[in-house]
């Protein structure tokens, strides 16, 4: 905001794109008000339905493009769940698949120009992250009772170190949801903000002579960052999902 008076004409509002606005009319945003977040979540849901339901509607033995896309995602997550959590984690596969496709599709749709990315908001990712945390903790306690606390008690460490390690383990356990949710929101927010900053430099050619140099560079930079962001959209969905699987494995098999 300090940059605005320094370079008149260029508009630096890297965080404007994250604003939540009403879809219809004016007024305060209630919990039920349809907003741009609602719109883009709905679009993500629609895309998911198109890929996973309509794409596989023909159940063909030789898959078409959409169907093989859905099958690839299915196989990818199924294998991940099976590899990380073991065979008894497969029960939670629909839940993990839901997380993956929701994050992936909102990330990718958010990369469309003039769109909105729900996963760039702490509120959304915190619900996801703390939801996973609560689910996993309660599942572990329900499955193993007090034995679940053995997760923090390293029985193969020297006896003197065990309480210290236990403290560290407890702290790192409770930091998990925070880092889990902030990682996703922070990554997406940072990428979008960087694109916006470069985009703000692009119209400099209309204002000043130096723009001949700056504008092409900033446009090239936007292209490069955009490609990186497509990658990040995938990787963050993948990382969020695999960490969920790892936490789930801890809940199902607390003995390391």
């Amino acid at each position: 905001m300090a940059g605005t008076e320094h370079s008149e004409g260029l508009a630096f509002h890297p965080l404007e794109q994250f604003e939540i606005t009403r879809l219809f009319g004016h007024g305060p945003i209630h919990w039920y008000t349809p907003t741009n977040a609602t719109l883009w979540m709905a679009l993500a849901t629609l895309a998911i339905i198109v890929v996973f339901v309509l794409g596989s509607a023909r159940r063909s033995m030789i898959p078409g493009r959409l169907q093989s896309l859905g099958e690839m995602a299915y196989d990818f997550i199924y294998k991940m769940v099976e590899d990380v959590t073991g065979h008894d984690g497969v029960k939670y596969f629909p839940m993990i698949m839901t997380l993956f496709v929701f994050i992936l599709f909102t990330n990718l749709l958010g990369l469309l120009p003039a769109s909105f990315t729900p996963t760039s908001h702490i509120a959304v990712t915190a619900i996801l992250g703390f939801g996973v945390f609560l689910f996993v903790t309660l599942l572990g306690l329900a499955k193993h009772g007090v034995g679940f606390l053995g997760l923090f008690w390293m029985s193969d460490a020297p006896l003197i170190l065990r309480p210290i390690i236990a403290v560290i383990e407890v702290i790192s356990y409770f930091v998990r949801p925070v880092s889990h949710s902030i990682r996703l929101a922070g990554n997406i927010m940072a990428g979008h903000a960087v694109i916006k900053v470069f985009a703000a430099f692009a119209p400099l050619i209309l204002i000043s002579g130096i723009g001949v140099l700056v504008t092409p560079i900033s446009i090239l930079a936007i292209v490069a960052i955009y490609a990186l962001e497509v990658l990040v959209a995938f990787i963050q969905a993948y990382v969020f999902t695999i960490l969920t699987c790892v936490y789930l494995k801890d809940a199902l098999h607390p003995g390391h």
Partner: peptide, 15 residues
């Protein structure tokens, strides 16, 4: 990827 995510998370925190 898990290692990358953990390393990157701290950078995101400072951001």
């Amino acid at each position: 990827f898990i290692g990358l995510a953990f390393a990157e998370a701290l950078g995101i925190f400072s951001f």
